[in-house]
């Protein structure tokens, strides 16, 4: 059941990405090119998403718990540590080079562009590398 609800929510998210233009790297790169062929569209994607989520989260979080599962899994870390600077800094460089962030890259898979087919496996490798590195550092700290 949860699987199918998640398929529907992923579909809604992905259709939103396509309609908004986020799944087109040319549009993303033009948004990032303020001093060139600037296309401000993506500011509205972010604005629309944050507007709905800002109100929606406030309504949802008045509940004691979600529909399934015992509690809300909200991030509890609030430190501004090296990882929350270094990670986004590295991610931003890749985003500026390729015009893809993780969601749009996955959604764009079905469009079959050769660039996307090269980007996604590299991205998954990078994700796995970061997870394994984080796990090994956590183990060192625990010892």
């Amino acid at each position: 059941m949860s699987f199918f609800v998640n398929v529907a929510l992923g579909l809604l998210f992905g259709v939103g990405l396509v309609i908004s233009g986020m799944a087109d790297p040319a549009k993303v790169l033009n948004f990032l090119d303020v001093f060139g062929t600037w296309d401000p569209s993506l500011a509205l994607v972010m604005g629309g998403a944050v507007f709905v989520a800002f109100i929606g989260y406030r309504l949802v979080l008045t509940r004691d718990k979600p529909i399934i599962g015992g509690s809300f899994y909200l991030p509890t870390t609030s430190d501004i540590d090296a990882r929350v600077i270094a990670g986004p800094a590295i991610f931003g460089i890749g985003w500026g080079l390729g015009g893809f962030c993780p969601g749009p890259a996955l959604t764009a898979l079905g469009l079959g562009a050769s660039g996307t087919l090269a980007f996604v496996p590299a991205m998954i490798l990078g994700m796995w590398g970061a997870r394994l590195l984080a796990e090994s550092r956590a183990q060192v700290r625990a010892v």
């Binding site: 949860s2 809604l12 296309d39």
Partner: peptide, 27 residues
């Protein structure tokens, strides 16, 4: 690329709605 304020706003709101519903469904 063409400036697409309406489509981008609607698409963005769908993304936000998906995020809200995922929080509602399984937190």
């Amino acid at each position: 690329t063409e400036f697409t304020p309406f489509a981008s706003l609607v698409g963005g709101m769908m993304i936000g709605l998906s995020a809200v519903l995922l929080m509602l469904w399984e937190g």
